[in-house]
Design a protein around this nucleic acid. Structure first.
Lengths: 219, 219
DNA sequence: GTCTAATGTGACTCATGAGTCATTTTCGAC
DNA sequence: GTCGAAAATGACTCATGAGTCACATTAGAC
């Protein structure tokens, strides 16, 4: 948690610190990130820093939570602009949104990837719940929607559904956010987006009630 | 690369060093791993260590490659004992094998997970090729087998097939090897294994040759 | 046995980076 | 203006851990 002094800070100074920290933690993992570098970049003396945060860990937690919040809001804005016709289009929107995020806010993308895909630090346990809150919100929306409309077969065990959605989403997000693509992936973004849609179409058929498995036409 | 002195070492001493290093790198990531601890555990003085390896990085690379080799051999032995009837049973065997690995050789499992799921250190670039060699070998076997028998629909674009297999495998392996299971996963191993089988059955249907061309998704 | 090169050893060096502290500056209350 | 508390500051401390080095021991050649 930031101290009250931090909250009293003028917006300009506070943002300078926050931005510098975001960049630092985007570019380096927790252990390799350096307060000295953050201090230098933000032009805030190291001594002052300790007025605002207990220490490195408190800053990291704050920054990551902040980044997750921003990312989620970014997606909310993005998805509200679209007419989503079923739960699979929601999933599609969420995944395709990552391309935009990675391009427009690479620092946020990098931090997001770090929290979600980096194996357990003891910090993980403090951060993961924040991530999971968002993730659960999304999955709940996906599932209730799908079950309500009958687009998802009620016969399939919930854990299996969840696994499949999770596996697909995680895999795409990871590649998109970290930017490391396996050599067998097409290189152009257009074709990658197309592949996203195709993989979700497959899921639509796989999870769909036996009868309703029709595929949309077009890319 | 280890030095020639290292290779001249008696097996007992060499193994002591190797085992200590494996444990250290299994329990801590590269930055947090400490040579002092390896020296203490292996009862090999730190000074001597530098006769065998250039430094920490050389040791890490050697240890990880070694761990990947062991893991792969372990799987080979494991899978040769089984009668695999099609490529999906190969995939199943590979995934279920991870349960055994995690139980019998948790250190290897931890290192494997670290290399594959940890985001890019500059070390990653030295290690990933080793992993990918094995991974590619597996995928090639899976694919040629599946296409040869017709269990995999030739119409589906190779990238899509590969993505689906990859997403499924990666997701399972990660959960099994790191041991962190999402709360919505069943807790008993028996049911988890069952779920593995079910998810692969779904894939079998999804990738399988279709009657009447209702699935024309290939690019 | 003796000489030499290879190997073994652990106390030391040295860079690094988180966190502290004594001092100065700012700011609001009166 | 003056006083006291809060905030700012950067030189310093201190722990840590990778890598070195001067000396000791061993092993092989003759």
């Amino acid at each position: 948690m930031p101290t009250s002094t931090y909250h009293n800070l003028g917006t300009e100074k506070r943002d300078r610190l926050l931005r510098a920290a975001i960049i630092e933690f985007a570019e380096h993992d927790y252990a390799s990130a350096k307060l000295d570098r953050i201090a230098a970049r933000s032009k805030i003396p190291k001594g002052s820093f300790y007025q605002y945060f207990r220490g490195k860990e408190a800053l990291y937690v704050h920054v990551v939570k902040h980044a997750l919040d921003l990312t989620w809001e970014h997606f909310q804005r993005h998805s509200r602009r679209q007419r989503l016709r079923d739960c699979f289009e929601l999933l599609e929107a969420s995944t395709l949104h990552m391309f935009t995020l990675a391009k427009r806010h690479p620092e946020l993308a990098a931090i997001y990837a770090r929290v979600v895909y980096e194996p357990d630090t003891h910090l993980q346990s403090r951060l993961y719940p924040t991530y999971r809150a968002y993730s659960d919100e999304f999955h709940a929306r996906f599932l209730t929607w799908g079950l309500a409309t009958g687009d998802i077969d009620r016969q399939i065990s919930p854990a299996l559904i969840r696994f499949q959605v999770h596996a697909l989403g995680t895999q795409w997000n990871r590649m998109i956010l970290t930017g490391d693509w396996p050599p067998w992936m097409p290189a152009e973004e257009r074709r990658r987006r197309q592949l996203v849609r195709q993989s979700i179409d497959r899921l639509r058929v796989g999870l769909g009630a036996t009868d309703s498995g029709q595929l949309r036409v077009g890319a």
